[in-house]
Amino acid sequence: MSTMKRLAIALTTIAAVLALSGPAQTAHAQDVNVQGPLAGAPAVINMRIYRQMRFQIQGHFAMTLQDQFSRSMMVGGQLMFHPTDWLGLGVWTAFAVAKVDTSLTDQVSSKGQTAGVNVLSLPNPANFTQQIGRINSVIAPQVAFIPLRGKLGIFEKLFVDADLYAFGGVAFVGITERANVDDKQVSACKARFAANGLSDAIACYAPTQSATADRTAVAPTFGIGLSMFFADFMAFTMEWRALPFSWNTSGTDESGHPRGDYPDGKINESDRLAHFNHMITFGLAFYLPTKPKLSTAGNE
């Protein structure tokens, strides 16, 4: 990235931060100068307190976004307890029920080419789908922070209570990657390549292409969400979640060379590159007890 690009992005970021932080003082009041009987009163009275001392049991559908080679469609659930209306503690889970190859995977499978220089990375293009990395599951203990509570009107007909929340925690991500190809295997295949040419090297590497290994990646997770309460005990939720961690999405030799991100002739941990994995979730949340309390002045 050029210096100009970095400068432009930095200036934009600073401007955005200033724009958000600067007017906050003004937004705090939004031109309301409260006097008289309501001076000092809470902004809302008789508000439904949807979360305080209630359990949230949620079922959801999640889908990974901007995947390079494989997209995971997941279903899962969340159990969360809210000691206050603005704080929740719980566990979020999702398990892949379908893994869809991206267009790039299809292109590599149908048009990729294998030569001496990349026979380790792509022994057989037709079998590329066997070597790509996939997300199988996510289990994330997390904390939810619910600072914003309000309501929205849709087409001036449907009015629902809503809240905006942020969450963060630790995610244990179950993934499948191409298994390591060590020095011993590489040496053997190189010898066959030298002796019999590319076709024998392809045959030598073929078993490594379909060999996979499962592991659990530990990653930070965070995101934001919107809940729309259609009943006292039920809400529709939408979430965006980030799961940044390093993994080998393509199953190819990408790094490990002393010069940096260049092939080192092996498939191993050094080929796990950092990815800003993220996903979107749609869910249906149920709250227990089913009847929320109402706020009154002084108990919010």
């Binding site: 705090h28 939004q30 902004a43 809302v44 600072p147 914003l148 309000g150 009107g153 849709i154 706020s295």
Partner: peptide, 16 residues
Amino acid sequence: VPIYGKFEMFNDSIFQ
């Protein structure tokens, strides 16, 4: 603009 709403923050500030 089909949808509009407002949010309050900690029962103090209101955002349209």
